[in-house]
């Protein structure tokens, strides 16, 4: 199933299961929110390895860079259908920074996800050299930022 269809299906199913507002009595954010945040941390960890080399804070290590880039590629390939479900936006969940507008712009959010996939694939292909890494990590940051700009609430 294509990523697009799977996300649309997930959104639809979750919408049908509506009233799907996570009761605060469960304590902590709903699992989908935790999963999203954990996923973002895994991006950050692997980007941190690459970024330290790109910045010149760490010596370039081609094997290590490739491992981190491969991990990022694996992460963007995960099916996130069940992360991004209605009832988990900042309007419903205190710990969530997901703007509710995302659910009105699913096609656009999908396009931004695809742009990230493409940027990460390019990074995976180029991470074997320091110049390649430096040139290809910027567009990944741009793709992260495009979605954060549109659909992430500012930090409180």
């Amino acid at each position: 199933m294509s990523l697009k269809r799977s996300i649309l299906t997930g959104v639809t199913i979750a919408a049908l299961a509506a009233g799907g507002v996570w009761a605060a009595s469960h304590g902590g954010p709903p699992p989908a929110v935790k999963a999203r945040q954990a996923h973002m941390q895994l991006y950050a960890f692997n980007l941190g390895i690459l970024g330290a080399m790109a910045k010149g804070e760490a010596e370039f290590d081609a094997e290590k860079a490739q491992r981190a880039a491969n991990n990022l590629a694996a992460l963007v390939s995960l099916d996130q259908t069940d992360y991004w479900v209605p009832g988990t936006s900042s309007a419903e969940v205190m710990e969530s920074r997901l703007k509710p507008e995302m659910f009105e712009n699913v096609a656009d959010a999908m396009a931004k996800g695809k742009a990230l996939q493409e940027a990460v694939m390019a990074l995976q292909g180029a991470a074997g050299t320091l110049d390649g890494l430096r040139a290809s990590i910027g567009p990944v940051g741009g793709a992260c930022g495009a979605c954060h700009k549109a659909y992430r609430e500012p930090q409180q």
Binding site: M40, Y43, A44, F45, L47, G48, G51, A54, I137, G138, V140, G141, G142, C144, G145, A146, H148, K149, R152, P154
Partner: peptide
């Protein structure tokens, strides 16, 4: 240059 913070969060909002 990239929008990455030192802990590899990325710029959002208007800063993106």
């Amino acid at each position: 240059e990239t929008g990455f913070t030192p802990d590899f969060d990325s710029a959002g909002g208007e800063m993106a």
